[in-house]
Amino acid sequence: MQMTRDLRIVSVQEWREAAEGTVSVRGLSAWYGRHRALTDVSLEVRPRSVTALIGPSGCGKSTLLRCLNRMHEVVLGATVSGQVLLEDEDVYGSGVDPVSVRRRVGMVFQQPNPFPTMSIYDNVAAGLRLAGTRNRGVLDGKVEQALRQAALWDEVKDKLRKPGTALSGGQQQRLCIARALAVDPEVLLMDEPASALDPVATARIEELMVELKRDYTVVVVTHNMQQAARVSDYTAFLLSEDGGGGALVEYGETRQVFEEPRDERTRDYVTGRL
């Protein structure tokens, strides 16, 4: 099906590489108890790009994000229907362990949340260690690599034994990004990763997102439209109308969504009229 759509792909191996990190959402609805938070959302996330989810608060953008790595169901009473395909596997298929989904789809939260009882090093190594990596050399290498990718290495290389909570807010958030990257995910989800940070720290996180899309598929939730316009390649606009669950209104290249929105509601929102 993918093959016929893209004729440039010639071998199975190339096809696999191109598909790594694709996320297809199909007919996804989500609930908290009886309350519907998301209604029938379908979209294809392009690999190795930054996709921004925007919309007014309560539109379901964070819920959509949390459905992508099955973190939604961590909340008591939360349920989902529909499909999320990671490459070609439905993460909600029967027999799929959410644990294995989350290893492939990393997540960074709104509030920096390093593990309070662990050092900087242990925070980054946590995912690997708990998956069974014991070799010191391997761990050292992965920790350094992840911290470099998160642009934090130079600031912390001399204090890896200090607690992660001793860092500044912006550094903590980059530590959390490093922690997520250390387990080699294919997709990185970011839930308003800069909303708790000052402008300088925010700028560093934004630079980082652009860097990261070389290796990862990045999906970011933001309430800041300038940020979405600055960092993302694709933008999805969600809206919850008359108290129902949030629905997808428009999805396309970021430039198009901001400059030539097809839907009137999108135009109202991106021009600040909603």
Binding site: R26, G27, S29, T39, D40, S81, G82, Q83, D90, Y92, G93, S94
Partner: peptide
Amino acid sequence: MARELRTG
């Protein structure tokens, strides 16, 4: 796909 799409 084993499970049908549900959008109820």
